[in-house]
Every structure is written in C-alpha cells, then in structure tokens.
Design a binder for these strands. Structure first.
Lengths: 112, 112
DNA sequence: TTCTTATGCATAAGAAAATTATGTATACTT
DNA sequence: AAGTATACATAATTTTCTTATGCATAAGAA
C-alpha cells in the first residue's frame, strides 16, 4: 500500500478477504483487483505482497498451485480450511477496529 | 494500541483529532480518553504514545506546557497552527482510507 | 531495433511504527 | 508491605511496510 502509508497491518486481512470471495487468485491479480476496487487509491507493492503471501502459506492458511499461462508462471493461492476460519476472524476484528476508529474520528455520533 | 495490533500508523492522527477537540491534553489523559471512547477496546501503550507525541512536537505540530498537579508533573500538549492544519489533512486521509477499506471488506456495497 | 510498459515472481536493505520491558516518582488502598 | 493508579520517559526488539534490485516473457512505441 504505497499511496497512503496508512493501516499497516491490514494487508493480510485484505488478502484473506479477497480469497474468501474468489476461490483462487495469483499475486499479480490481487494487486490489480485491489487497485480496481479502490479506484487506484491502494497500490499494493510486490515487496509487501509476496512476503505476506509466503507467510500466510507458511502458517497453513493458504495453499498454492502453479500454472503456466502464456509462457509465464502463475502461482495461484487458495484458502485452506484454517485459512477460511482465519479470514472470518480477521475480517471481524478489522471491522470492529474500524467501528472504534470511527468513534474516535466522529465523537458526536459515537457518544450520541 | 495493544489489543488488536491493527492499524499501525493511525496513532498520530488519533492524537491530532483529540487535540482538535480538546484544546489541551496530557499524555495519560489521552490514553484514558481513547480507552473510554472505545469502551476499553483500544489501549494505547506508553511506548507508542510518548515517542509519537515527541515526534509531533519535533515536527512543530504540537506545543507543550508543563504543570504541577498534586505533586505530579503533567505535560500538556496543544495543537500549533500547523498542527491544526495537519489534523484536518490527516483525518481526511484516514477517512478516505477507511472508505476504500470498506469497499474491500464489503464489495457488494462498494460496487453496487 | 531499442526502449518502455505490462505481466509475473522473488528477495534484500532500510525505515517506520508498533510491542514489551524497564526505570523513576508520588499517592492511595489493602 | 504490596498492589493499583497516576505520570513521564527510553531502550531493545519485532512487525510490517517501502524502496531497490533481480530474473523472465511479451507487446507496443519510438
């Protein structure tokens, strides 16, 4: 996430959420999907993405499958069973966090 | 912010926002206010808070004033003029970020 | 034909921003 | 006497980025 330098710590949750909806995705596809959804405002760098994917795989949350497409390698990632559970947990935690952050940013609503 | 380990990078914005509303606050007060507003879900640690306050002061965004209250030192922080401007900017950036994050977490709404 | 952009993965060096642990000090409660 | 609350501060470590670099193929522009 280059443009804003905000919200370090949410990348893994974003990845898990996207994979919850898409069955399988490859790295480059994830960067493009995020860019598309956020109208170009989030740019996930490879230096952040690939280490994060590798870590999630090492933790047993993602499984991989490599394909050759048009003479290029694609490494597809899918949620494991544990990954699916963790996706729910992490998304819920992040949403909870956002609610609290909104209370801080918008105290009139929060304490109304 | 100990409990969730999320949203690293938003602490400075939270501080600026609180000071935008409160004229002046001291460190311990900030930790208690955040805890109160978020019903105990955000716990700002001293190890995060004080370095962040010092940095904001070094950047000219905050000014300080020390008082003795009941035999204890309190260091009050206030927004400078530049701090006030920066508070607006950072809050707007964070809100913008949250909008995009919501699009990722709630794609059905985002692309509706 | 050469350069740039796009596609696709990966790692290393460095910076930023936390966590955790520690230290000092006063005051109140158990 | 020990623990909790108030109040500030810093150091060591960890996490998670950014930036830079590297490899490789393909397509389009100059």
């Amino acid at each position: 996430m280059s443009s804003s330098k905000l919200l370090k710590g949410s990348l893994a949750t974003i990845i898990l959420k996207l994979l919850e909806e898409n069955e399988k995705m490859y790295g480059y596809e994830i960067t493009q999907r995020v860019k598309e959804i956020t109208a170009g405002e989030f740019k996930i760098t490879e230096g952040a993405l690939y280490p994060s994917l590798h870590k999630l795989e090492a933790e047993g949350l993602l499984s991989t499958e490599t394909q050759m497409v048009e003479n290029r390698v694609r490494k597809y990632y899918s949620l494991t069973k544990e990954g699916n559970a963790e996706a729910h947990t992490k998304v819920a935690e992040l949403e909870d966090f956002l609610v609290n952050l909104q209370k801080l940013l918008n105290p009139k609503l929060g304490l109304g």
